[in-house]
Design a protein around this nucleic acid. Structure first.
Length: 211
DNA sequence: GTACAGATTGAG
DNA sequence: TCAATCTGTACT
């Protein structure tokens, strides 16, 4: 069962959407090929009151203005001058909240894959190979490189786009499988905000993700 | 205009 | 530990 997420999904409360996105699949169409990844780590950025958010104090810039649209749009921006960060806007119009996609498990088409002799004892799907594959997409900058995303996706509507969307493939992530921690790389925000447990990840993957 | 830090990554 | 290298902000 593959069901494209609709507007109603994205306009929910940001913390809820951040958790519900875990286990969903991002599909990116490149020509006839589909690049697919299962979302395994997210972070919530919750509007004007959030010291760590770009929309802190209701700030509007050329970069973050898309956050103010209704949920379901892509907010993509460059950090450190070289890495794209994929965010999905959430909540309603005028509520500048979003979810940062921090990590995926890539879904590789293993059927056509020749098994390299050095992987013979670790064929596609085996724990070691999964571990190898995860290195492609276990960070916000890396997953954008894998999905071939750039500025041209800024503002795209995920609920009706032909190049990229998010699917529910019937996988259910139980609350007990979700780990909540402090957000990464926002030490500039006061301790109160950086310690809020608004980073969510699927427990099984925690060893492959940033500390 | 100049200076500097940042929702990161990979090399040394 | 550090440098790569754009965008936004806080100054001169």
């Amino acid at each position: 069962m593959k069901k494209k997420l609709n507007r109603n999904f994205y306009t929910g409360p940001t913390l809820k959407v951040a958790k519900e996105l875990l286990g969903k699949y991002i599909v990116r169409k490149v020509g006839k090929r589909e690049l697919v990844g299962k979302i395994i780590e997210t972070e919530a950025y919750v509007g004007p009151q959030d010291r760590a958010a770009h929309s802190y104090k209701g700030k509007i810039t050329l970069r973050n203005k898309i956050e103010y649209l209704i949920g379901g749009h892509i907010y993509i921006y460059l950090v450190y001058g070289m890495y794209w960060q994929l965010n999905i806007t959430t909540a309603g119009k005028g509520e500048p909240e979003c979810v940062l996609i921090r990590a995926l498990e890539p879904v590789l088409d293993n059927s056509k894959l020749k098994i390299d002799s050095k992987f013979k004892s670790n064929p596609p799907g085996s724990p070691l190979r999964v571990q190898q594959n995860l290195k492609l997409t276990n960070g916000p900058g890396k997953l954008c490189r894998y999905l071939k995303l750039d500025k041209s996706f800024y503002g795209e509507d995920l609920s009706k786009n032909k190049r990229i969307w998010v699917e529910d493939r019937g996988e259910k992530i139980k609350p007990s499988q979700i780990l909540a921690t402090g957000r990464v790389g926002i030490d500039y925000a006061s301790h109160y905000w950086s310690k809020r447990k608004w980073r969510f990840l699927i427990r099984d993957y925690r060893k492959s993700l940033a500390k």
